[in-house]
Design a protein around this nucleic acid. Structure first.
Lengths: 121, 121
DNA sequence: ACGGTTGTCAACCCGATGGTTGAATACCGT
DNA sequence: ACGGTATTCAACCATCGGGTTGACAACCGT
C-alpha cells in the first residue's frame, strides 16, 4: 500500500535541489518563482522538481491568482521516519547482540587458530 | 559534506527491492545468493543492488571464503533520521503557528468577503 | 482589451539506472 | 589439479530523470 509512496518519497529526496527546496519550505511557504530564483536552472526545471515533491505528498499547493504557493506537508516525514527507525532499531539491537557472538567467536578462534574476520553462520 | 552521501542513501532506498534487502538484513546477515533467492531477477542484478547499498554506506561486507556476507550498518540511518526530523519539526511547528494565522484570515475574510482558500503572503 | 507576470505543457537531449547474458575470478573440497 | 560454487566484471539494451527551449494558458493591472 504505502510501498510505492515510500519509493516516491525517497526518490524525491534523493535530489539535492529538491532537498534544498524542502529545507526552504520548512521556513516559509513560497511560490515557484521564489523557489527557482537561487538556482541557476530554468523555472521549468524547478516546476518539475516541485511536481515530484507534490506527487510524493511532501508538498501541497494552493492557488493565489496566477501564483501557486507551495507548502511543506509534515505527515509524510512520519512515514519515512517510521520506516527508518524500524530498521535502525533492529540493526542496533543486532549490533548489541553481536558482542556476545564475538566473545564466542574469540573462544572458538583460540581453539582452532581461525584468526580471520569470518562470521560463519 | 554529507550532502552527497545523503543523496546516495535516499537514492539507494528509493528502490523497493533494495528496501526489502535492507529489511531482511535487519533480521540477519546474508550472502548475495541468499539475498537473491526470493527475487526473480538474476544474481548479478542483486549483486548490483548490494553494491549500491554498500556505496551508500548502508551495508558492509566481510569475506567468508568465496562468500561475501552482507551486514546492515545502523549509523547511516541516523544521518537520514536527523535530516528528516529537522524538517518535520519545523514543518509541524509552522503548522501549529498556522492556527493563529487562520484566525486572522477568518477575520479579514468576514470583513471584505474573501471566502477563498488563499493564504496571501 | 492588452501587455506583463506566473506557471505548465511538449518535445527533445543525454547521462544514469536496472535489467539482461556470457565470461572471468576466487575459493572450497576432494 | 579439477570441478563446483559464489560473486563480480563487461557489454549491451530499454527506460527514467533532470535539463533544455519554445509555445501555451491563466490571471492581474491598467
Amino acid at each position: 500500500m504505502t510501498d510505492d509512496q515510500l519509493s516516491q518519497v525517497f526518490s524525491a529526496l534523493a535530489d539535492p535541489t529538491r532537498r534544498d527546496i524542502v529545507a526552504r519550505l520548512a521556513v516559509r511557504d513560497a511560490t515557484v518563482n521564489e523557489l527557482a530564483e537561487p538556482y541557476d536552472v530554468s523555472v521549468q526545471a524547478v516546476s518539475k522538481h516541485i511536481r515530484v515533491l507534490e506527487d510524493a505528498g511532501l508538498v501541497s499547493r494552493t492557488r493565489d491568482a496566477q501564483r501557486r504557493p507551495c507548502h511543506l506537508e509534515a505527515e509524510v516525514f512520519d512515514l519515512m521516519t517510521k520506516w527508518i527507525e524500524r530498521y535502525r532499531r533492529e540493526a542496533e539491537e543486532r549490533f548489541r547482540r553481536l558482542d556476545v557472538v564475538l566473545e564466542q567467536l574469540k573462544d572458538e578462534a583460540s581453539e582452532d587458530g581461525t584468526t580471520q574476520e569470518g562470521q560463519a553462520s
